[in-house]
């Protein structure tokens, strides 16, 4: 697997897209920091961008890269290489390339601006952490969708639909269910519902770290009680981890049963 990973990173390292992606974060983070002049505010603005864009870009890159490297995969499956290593290697290669681009694109301007002295290091860290998790999650799901769908158009459509569902539709259903159950104490329900959407989970995780939590009143306090503790942190990371693990495991299963 390490060999496959090595070559897929090597391959992506050549790709312009990786650099454009890196450059994009460099530009956005740099602009927000140096024009805005406030680390916390930059982090808040970046949060909005990251929560939408990372899933979107990871989904699109994931599905495109999967379809583009089908020939590569076919070349590899005929070689004496374990099948699961091929998929995991390719998957890790892309996820790592994307998260490293993200990490560097964000990290460089923040370091230059003086992250160390801003007192926002933990907030920055949670931003990077959730951003990387989202990259791994949405790339995995995109790969899985690609693996299940020979038809590129259909696969692409499904991947975008998945993103749309998680980024928008889920929250609509979320809000609707809160409105319908308004007579009941629904904080626990809301807490439960966030766990099933990695974007929501990440958003709330970051927001509670940031000062915005004060806007959230009683509900915020309940969420803070949950997410603020070590248990909450563990559960958050565990849930995000599961969100990575499940599609990756599916990737392995489906990969072993797939015909080329």
């Amino acid at each position: 697997m390490i060999k496959i990973l090595k070559y897929s990173i090597y391959d992506l390292g050549r790709s312009h897209w990786t650099f454009i992606y890196f450059g994009f974060y460099l530009l956005i983070a740099g602009t927000l920091l140096f024009l805005g002049g406030d680390v916390l505010k930059a982090i808040i603005s970046l949060m909005n961008i990251i929560l939408i864009l990372i899933p979107l870009i990871s989904t699109i890159f994931g599905i495109m890269y999967f379809y583009n490297s089908r020939d590569f995969i076919e070349l590899l499956v005929a070689q004496p290489v374990k099948r699961s290593s091929i998929f995991l290697g390719q998957y890790l290669g892309l996820s790592l390339a994307l998260s490293v681009s993200f990490l560097l694109g964000m990290g460089i301007p923040f370091l230059f601006y003086g992250l160390k002295d801003s007192g926002q290091f933990m907030n920055f860290l949670s931003l990077i952490l959730t951003g990387s998790f989202l990259t791994f999650i949405f790339t995995a799901v995109a790969f899985l969708i690609g693996l299940f769908n020979e038809n590129k158009i259909k696969g692409f459509g499904l991947a975008i639909l998945f993103w749309l569902f998680m980024a928008v539709i889920y929250d609509g259903l979320f809000l609707l269910s809160l409105l319908m159950l308004e007579a009941y104490p629904i904080e626990k329900l809301a807490l439960g519902m966030t766990v099933f959407n990695p974007i929501d989970l990440s958003r709330i995780f970051i927001m509670l770290k940031l000062d915005i939590s004060a806007l959230m009143g009683y509900t915020g306090a309940i969420f803070q009680d949950f997410f603020g503790t070590a248990t909450g942190l563990t559960i958050t990371i565990l849930a995000l981890g599961l969100w990575v693990f499940i599609p990756v495991y599916g990737l392995k299963l489906k990969g072993n049963a797939k015909d080329f």
């Binding site: 929560l51 409105l179 929501d200």
Partner: peptide
């Protein structure tokens, strides 16, 4: 529904 504040800053 105060609990819906949880959706603050979501795209929806």
């Amino acid at each position: 529904v105060p609990a819906s504040i949880i959706l603050l800053r979501s795209l929806f």
